[in-house]
Each structure stands twice: as C-alpha cells, then as structure tokens.
C-alpha cells in the first residue's frame, strides 16, 4: 500500500501539473480538496480519468467519487480493494 501511495503521489503531481509540489509535500491522509492541495472540480475529473487510465477502475457514482478522492490514501485503498476482487 505504501508503495502505491508513493506512486499515486507522483502520478497526481504529473496529471494535475502541480509543478511546485513534491511527493513529500503531500500528506497521504490529508484531504485533496479544499484545504489540502487546493484542487478544483476539473482536477477531480482528471483524477477520475487517472484512476481509469492507469489502473482500469471506474468510479461509478458521485458519492463514490467523494469517498475515493478524499485523499491519496483513500485512492490507494480503492485501487487495492478492486485489485483483490
């Protein structure tokens, strides 16, 4: 899981063009939106595309999206849980 979290941090920085952010700056438990990295709704859509493109898993509903995209850790948990199925 830790390895996936670190990989996700790098992928998020690249996908969202967070040029001034390093993986070490991202707290895996912190909210990605609002206070965290200050991401917006377009970033949310881009993260949904990232999960589907890199890992092949679709987020099905807006409610699921809120849970999955809460933090890097929750994204990693979603991917790990799907991989176990």
């Amino acid at each position: 899981m830790d390895e996936l979290i670190e990989k996700l941090k790098i992928e998020i920085i690249e996908a969202l063009s967070l040029e001034e952010i390093t993986p070490a700056d991202i707290d895996a438990d912190a909210p990605l939106f609002l206070d965290g990295l200050g991401l917006d709704s377009i970033d949310a859509l881009e993260l949904i595309v990232l999960i589907e493109k890199k890992y092949g898993y679709k987020i099905q509903t807006a409610e699921e999206g809120k849970t999955v995209l809460y933090s890097v850790k929750s994204m990693a948990e979603f991917i790990t849980n799907r991989q176990k199925l």
């Binding site: 996908a15 377009i42 859509l45 589907e52």
Partner: peptide, 9 residues
C-alpha cells in the same frame, strides 16, 4: 480513449 477534462476546458 481518455479525454482530458483539464485540456478540454
């Protein structure tokens, strides 16, 4: 086929 929202806008 992965249309990018960030590019589309």
């Amino acid at each position: 086929y992965f249309p990018s929202p960030a590019v589309f806008v």
